[in-house]
Design a protein around this nucleic acid. Sequence first.
DNA 1: TGCGCGCGATGCGTGTGCTCGTAGTGGAAG
DNA 2: CTTCCACTACGAGCACACGCATCGCGCGCA
Lengths: 226, 226
Amino acid sequence: MRVLVVEDETRVASAVKRGLEAEGFAVDVAMTGTDGLWLAQENDYDVIVLDIMLPGMNGYRICSTLREGGNWTPILMLTAKDGEYDEAEALDTGADDYLTKPFSYVVLVARLRALLRRAGRSETVMYEAGDLRLEPALHRVWRGDTEISLTAREFSVLEYLLSRAGDVVSKRDILEHVWDFDFEGDPNIVEVYVGRLRRRVDEPFARRAIETVRGAGYRLRTDGGR
Amino acid sequence: MRVLVVEDETRVASAVKRGLEAEGFAVDVAMTGTDGLWLAQENDYDVIVLDIMLPGMNGYRICSTLREGGNWTPILMLTAKDGEYDEAEALDTGADDYLTKPFSYVVLVARLRALLRRAGRSETVMYEAGDLRLEPALHRVWRGDTEISLTAREFSVLEYLLSRAGDVVSKRDILEHVWDFDFEGDPNIVEVYVGRLRRRVDEPFARRAIETVRGAGYRLRTDGGR
DNA sequence: TGCGCGCGATGCGTGTGCTCGTAGTGGAAG
DNA sequence: CTTCCACTACGAGCACACGCATCGCGCGCA
């Protein structure tokens, strides 16, 4: 699955690239509008993530240029909500979906999946670790046969941990992927949410799927904590 | 089922394309009148959606050209209600039905289904989830054996939820599919209508088919809420 | 045929419960 | 003993649900 990311903010671009690659996407990044257009025309991507504010050539022009050339690759446009540019205009120029900044990585992935699904290019995804099961599209989680209800944020954290099951995931990673890219609050919030998750998915079932790796982060056991 | 959409407003075109593809139609889009006529003549579509105001060649001329050439593919014409062009003229030139802009996606689909049904090219579609049943063509809804009467808007929302039964559907999705493409009111209206639907299809039967997924959207249970 | 009245559909404003994030303290590991 | 993590309590903000005003349409009557 090939993805082109056209984004000049290095921080966002690299976080997205790392994350998508970890999920098995092949990611190209363009830091300028002209580069982005060039890459999009020269290669056959499955989906394009396109920032609007770009040096060289803005996202609208890239988008409409591609469409005029008969290129109908699904495009997800990133819009700032400062009013200067808006979503309607994004769709007008031929984008398939939009996302307002700031956004978090997991939301981006969810939207990409939806786009790919609509384009008929992807199969339904499901995460599994032992008897712990999570379906992103359905927004549902099970331990064995019993369903667990989680809040949106709890769900996102668990989804990310599951997407990297077996790995040690640093708190910084979690923060960068689950929270908005411009979140600047207390990193302690990650610990709070891991705690809440344990209380919901581990304790009632006498398991310990989420392990603490002191000084490094957390690891979700691939056997679900048996 | 093949559909040709001739429409120059990218926003409308891509929204229609996405939606129809999600329902299993094969959709071609033409952005100019000349392209549209060309595609319509070269391919055998099951139905054609045709905007009137088009760059290159307007919808009337495309329509009458096709009819003169012996092409009787059902045509649904899109008219703006500014009075410059009108519906009578659309039908005169050989269109089978018309729709005034702005329109919402579900209305478009309903009309297309009606056209296909009249042309004898489509099987009756029916949505089912547990004992909840909806027939788009008849515009009727049942819970078990008792019929439920809904307003147009309520029906549209339920139809869309049923078309994606089991999935979490975001409020934004519902808004974009059920309301006019240019609706810019309070998104809160979605919550209002979900509430009304519950009062009509859930509460009287002590069911809960429509679940709230806080922070994500709504989900229609595939078992109808048993 | 034209005007007026009533009802139903639609969408907006407002209240409330829940979620989220912060701060602070207690505890365990190294 | 120090550092890092777990847990709790609480306040602010938001997502959601509910009642109400408005708009438009259809029916009835003149």
